[in-house]
Design a protein around this nucleic acid. Sequence first.
DNA 1: TTCTAATTTGAGTCATCGCTCAACAAAAGT
DNA 2: ACTTTTGTTGAGCGATGACTCAAATTAGAA
Lengths: 184, 184
Amino acid sequence: MRNRAGEETAVRIVDAARQILSEAGLEAATVKAICDAAEVRPGSFYNLFDSKETVILEVIRQAIVAVDPDPERTGRDHITDLVEAFVRFVEDRPDLARVYITVGVSGGITDAGIRARMIRHHSERVARFTAALLRDRPNLTDAAAERTVDALLAALNGYTLQRMLDPDFDFAGHAKALLEMEPR
Amino acid sequence: MRNRAGEETAVRIVDAARQILSEAGLEAATVKAICDAAEVRPGSFYNLFDSKETVILEVIRQAIVAVDPDPERTGRDHITDLVEAFVRFVEDRPDLARVYITVGVSGGITDAGIRARMIRHHSERVARFTAALLRDRPNLTDAAAERTVDALLAALNGYTLQRMLDPDFDFAGHAKALLEMEPR
DNA sequence: TTCTAATTTGAGTCATCGCTCAACAAAAGT
DNA sequence: ACTTTTGTTGAGCGATGACTCAAATTAGAA
């Protein structure tokens, strides 16, 4: 990387990398494939990024950030808002959702840095969802709320996974139905 | 592939492939890496298998088969048995569980054959779990039972995913707690 | 216009990929 | 013992991977 310019080109490269990662997976995300999709030559690629890995990590970062938009609003959301926001994320940004689930997970197994980020992100989600649930249903104990949220988030991730495999899967319907579940 | 013998060698190769796939992911599963781990030379590899892909698909097949052991016993299990069998699978064979979740999913996005097998396998699981649940709780309607099973399996998959990222995660505890959930 | 710095280029390096095959070794028949 | 079948070897093939860099091009300041 020689300097800080060419930002529009850098954006095109990251966009191309995201598209390839989401549609064809990590294996297919070669420098050549990314450069072709971004209409850039390898020299430009390496003028702007230190390595292929840098670009891929940037896409994963985008995905993690996009999972929970507006995290600064913590404290005001209802649990339905949080679920709906996640549904919107999966429906509107299937590319980032795919990256989140596939690259995030397989990368999490290989790469300790990615793993740490995924785990941290998950515990932040649990805290946020639990606070919202307790606000909506104050009759629940803290433990019961956290158990419920654990199950809710696991099921949301499971449905996301299913949605990635089967584009016809009614993700929104199933996700919202989860709000009707509770410990018996 | 020249003949059908050298089966012990073939087993060693598949074992090595499974280990590498589970610990280091698809990217790391090169023919050289597999051969080194199996203490075999590439010539022998290609004497026994048509391609690298053949071996990887065999590992994925093993994983899918191992998810639901003894499927011929359909009709007698309780829902708790099915969940416990899955818990045992994840705890006892984390290697195959990792392959199931990571390679199965990322492969499912790329490869139509893998995708079809994963989807088929999932609908078989839904049918089996739903039958068991209706047997245990005849007061549920078919639709409610299937909704419950959908959520149960999604959550199990989500927990599996979480377990793959965090080895300290109490998978068995969370999985069994799911049996206490129901539609309200 | 002219000079300079920012940006892009593409041929090229070296390593590694999946895979092949002629030769060799070990068993198994006969 | 000799032949055949079965299994293994490892050098090496062409293709492609990530990545480099001197040269060309472009853009903005002077």
